[in-house]
């Protein structure tokens, strides 16, 4: 895992390795973040055990909203503090975070299509082996179609 001997390039990068401008990561902060992460996890688990099943039907959407937002908060702390991204150059932060926005369309398109497949199966699948199918009878052939 040793690095290739520096060929005179990257002199600045070499310096940057141990010359973080004003890092404010202290031991205290590290443990603070740890307790935050642990706390959030415990709240999530309690919600998962006690609340998520007993919540009234019209508020069920709160479950994924809650879990996902807590997940992103935890992810944010890990990336920003543990991985030190908060202390990097702004352009670097953007270079890492902006491409991840691609996930938005990635998730939306895939999950939308997944839901569509369920709908298709439920509405149009006459395959007796298809457990998702809810139609029981084959439709009659339309008038005037080719045999």
């Amino acid at each position: 895992m040793s690095e290739a001997p520096s060929h005179g390039h990257d002199a600045a990068g070499h310096d940057a390795g141990h010359g973080h401008q004003g890092t404010t990561m202290t031991t205290k902060r590290i443990w603070t973040v740890f307790w935050i992460l642990l706390g959030i996890t415990l709240v999530e688990v309690v919600w998962g055990m006690k609340v998520s099943h007993t919540i009234p039907h019209q508020y069920e959407w709160l479950n994924p909203v809650f879990f996902l937002s807590m997940t992103f908060v935890k992810a944010g702390y890990i990336v920003a503090e543990f991985m030190h991204l908060r202390y990097e150059v702004t352009a670097m932060i953007r270079s890492v975070l902006i491409p991840l926005l691609l996930f938005i369309w990635f998730v939306l398109a895939f999950c939308f299509d997944g839901a569509s497949w369920l709908h298709l199966r439920q509405a149009y699948s006459y395959n007796p082996n298809d457990k998702q199918a809810t139609q029981t009878e084959q439709p009659a052939p339309a008038e005037g179609t080719l045999k």
Partner: peptide, 22 residues
């Protein structure tokens, strides 16, 4: 003549690798 992100190439590569692993 310098890294615009003030990062060594090794760290930069690790970040981008992690993005790909993401």
């Amino acid at each position: 003549g310098k890294s615009p992100y003030a990062l060594s190439y090794g760290k930069l590569m690790m970040w981008f690798f992690l993005m790909s692993d993401a």
